[in-house]
């Protein structure tokens, strides 16, 4: 199955254009700032963005089915706090991480069940879960960041190196590769695409649509939870208010990457490049001492532009779909002449 060929032409080019934009941005910032184009800075950017890359990759697959998870940011905050609390309570870090991941998975299960069993719109269902998650994150730590009593090795996860590469970059690399393989080389990717494109066809082909949707909700929740653990480890604390706009970064990356809200197609590579574009802009602008608020504004503008671009594609294809094939009108005329 050669899935690369199955992507419509424009998307291949959209990913390519994104890549060009990415390169251009790198060149621009490299010229503008002495500190930008350095290995250390790139490692730094990748370390900071590893959580985003992981979750966005998973959420792209979910979006291919036409679903979305807004509760990812709440899940990230909640998982970070829970992980820190468990670590501070003296649990071995691995055990703490496993318990946290299991709790984070709960978000995915609830989201998935609300969407598949109760048929609630994924936007509203996960918005509700976002509130509940945000509240829970504050409740478990009593509204205070968890900083004291953390074991010495708490920050190791994010600061250790393996084979000369920082561990978070390796995790992101492994995770993103996994989701790329899932999307492009396994049946799950194909089925996710089929569900978003023509749900009825998927059902009639005997695909277990609900199980796959639920599974992808769980996958996104797991990645968000892992992101929480990684973020807690990076800052050395469990902060219930961290990274409020995480899910927005995820949306921006996915939509700019060329995956439409309605699903049916999607590109992990596109999402990852788009995420890196957002990150490079942020990093580059702060190198140039541009106010951080511009980042927020630019993200918003990118989101709106990406929406308009994606919708234009949709409108375009609709026009094509409703235009009758040329032979039809000719045939109609022929018969109408014959009928007279």
């Amino acid at each position: 199955m050669k899935q690369a060929n199955t992507l419509p032409g424009f998307m291949k080019s959209q990913t390519f254009i994104l890549f060009l934009v990415f390169i251009a941005l790198n060149i621009f910032f490299a010229l503008m700032s002495d500190h930008f184009f350095q290995l250390g800075n790139y490692f730094n950017m990748l370390k900071q963005s590893s959580a985003l890359l992981l979750t966005a990759a998973a959420a792209t697959m979910l979006m291919m089915t036409g679903n979305f998870d807004l509760s990812a940011s709440a899940n990230l905050a909640f998982s970070g706090v829970l992980y820190a609390l468990l670590a501070a309570a003296g649990l071995p870090l691995l055990l703490a991480a496993l318990i946290t991941l299991a709790a984070g998975m709960g978000f995915g299960l609830i989201n998935g069940l609300l969407v598949t069993r109760w048929e609630i719109s994924p936007f509203i269902a996960t918005l509700g879960m976002m509130f509940i998650g945000n509240g829970l994150a504050l409740v478990v730590c009593g509204g205070q960041s968890v900083r004291s009593g953390l074991p010495d090795n708490f920050r190791n996860l994010m600061n250790a190196e393996l084979l000369g590469l920082p561990v978070p970059i390796l995790i992101a690399l492994v995770g993103c590769t996994l989701f790329w393989v899932l999307t492009n080389r396994t049946l799950i990717g194909k089925y996710a695409m089929a569900i978003g494109s023509n749900r009825n066809a998927a059902v009639l082909s005997g695909i277990n649509v609900n199980a796959i949707t639920l599974g992808l909700f769980v996958a996104v929740a797991l990645m968000a939870s892992l992101s929480g653990i990684m973020t807690a480890s990076r800052i050395g604390a469990g902060d219930p208010r961290i990274y409020e706009f995480f899910f927005m970064d995820v949306v921006v990356a996915i939509m700019l990457g060329g995956t439409p809200l309605s699903g049916g197609r999607g590109s992990i590579i596109g999402t990852l490049i788009a995420a890196m574009i957002v990150i490079v802009i942020g990093n580059g602008l702060s190198m140039l001492n541009v106010l951080i608020f511009w980042q927020t504004i630019i993200k918003g503008v990118i989101l709106i532009v990406a929406m308009i671009l994606n919708e234009k594609v949709k409108f375009g294809s609709r026009v094509v779909a409703t235009t009758p094939p040329a032979d039809r009108s000719v045939a109609n005329q022929a018969t109408s002449v014959a009928a007279q």
Partner: peptide
């Protein structure tokens, strides 16, 4: 454009907040 309001209005949420700080 008919985009889901949850996502669509978030664009303005970002931009307006950013400009407020700016």
């Amino acid at each position: 454009l008919g985009i889901n309001p949850v996502i669509a209005t978030v664009g303005v949420l970002f931009i307006a907040r950013g400009f407020a700080f700016l």
